[in-house]
């Protein structure tokens, strides 16, 4: 007999992990192509608000998912335009993308604050009261399964296909990739927008499933944890998924600590994921001796005639 609290913890872990993982995977793809996009938080927010508004107005969840993905992807194209086409600083552009995304989504979502969604993404399999881990997994909604598929596909494409190797070649060494005739601008632009689309999906998951309402700043730093996850996962999809589960577990565990007999202020519990993220990053960087496995030419704008 597995106790019900434990199952609740597993369920919450999976959900928190799904949210973080999809965004992290998108960022991983962009970074593999050499584009650092610090705008993840803003892109998730745009995806979350646009998906939520569509859901409220149409009650069509499929359409909402699509709108969330597309709008976040379009939003990320600002970063692609400024950094890939106009070759401006990726750090600055990404930071501003976050600030713009947060304020823009607050503006758009103002009228919808506090409204509750009538529909919510249901589990793929109809399981009333899950009683074991398998049933918990089966009871997850469609985006959870999409995340798993995306993980497998991304890992396969990056490692095993010419297309993926070419993306990686660009992020590793711009000049060599250029001499191979690879289309650097186009690839980076697309990879950035794909990263945005993934962040949008993560945002939709946030408002359609994880916490089915909209409020300002509800992304609460998850975009930044996703960025940390990419480093944690060493730019590898499966390891990033493992990291997402770990961080998801911590996020899920916090509010439940009391039920396991730990007395802790709920305010302190809330900050533990951030503290742990920093500590994990530090430990990881020490273990790997500063070499985290980042693509070597990440963050460098490509201009062919640079001497």
């Amino acid at each position: 007999m597995i106790d019900i609290q434990f199952l609740g913890l597993v369920n919450a872990t999976l959900q928190a992990a799904t949210l973080l993982f999809i965004a992290a995977l998108g960022e991983l793809i962009a970074e593999k192509s050499g584009v650092l996009n610090l705008g993840v938080e803003g892109m998730i927010s745009i995806g979350a608000v646009s998906g939520f508004i569509t859901a409220i107005n149409t009650e069509n969840l499929f359409l909402s998912i699509i709108v969330g993905i597309v709008s976040a992807s379009l939003f990320s194209s600002i970063h692609a335009f400024v950094t890939v086409i106009l070759k401006q600083d990726q750090t600055v552009s990404g930071l501003i993308l976050t600030i713009l995304g947060l304020s823009l989504s607050s503006l758009i979502g103002k009228k919808y604050v506090g409204k509750k969604l009538n529909t919510k993404l249901e589990g793929v399999f109809d399981i009333e009261n899950p009683s074991n881990i398998l049933e918990i997994i089966l009871a997850q909604n469609i985006i959870f399964y999409i995340a798993i598929i995306l993980m497998i596909v991304t890992a396969f494409v990056l490692k095993r296909t010419m297309f993926g190797r070419r993306i990686e070649a660009i992020g590793e060494d711009l000049k060599s990739a250029d001499s191979m005739g690879l289309k650097i601008g186009k690839t980076q632009f697309i990879a950035t927008c794909v990263g945005g689309a993934f962040a949008g999906l993560s945002g939709v998951y946030l408002t359609l499933s994880y916490v089915p309402y909209w409020t300002d700043g509800m992304t609460s730093g998850r975009g930044w944890i996703a960025l940390a996850l990419v480093i944690f996962g060493g730019w590898k999809p499966y390891r990033t998924a493992f990291g997402a589960l770990l961080f998801g577990f911590l996020e899920a565990l916090g509010p439940r600590l009391q039920t396991y007999g730990f007395e802790m202020s709920p305010y302190i519990v809330k900050i533990t994921p951030y503290v742990i993220t920093i500590l994990v990053l530090i430990v990881l960087t020490i273990l790997k001796n500063g070499n985290t496995g980042a693509p070597k030419n990440i963050g460098i704008p490509f201009f062919r005639e640079n001497r």
């Binding site: 590793e172 060494d173 060599s176 191979m180 070597k296």
Partner: peptide, 8 residues
């Protein structure tokens, strides 16, 4: 300067 990707 060689145009080879070292890690590949």
């Amino acid at each position: 300067e060689f145009r080879l990707i070292d890690s590949f």
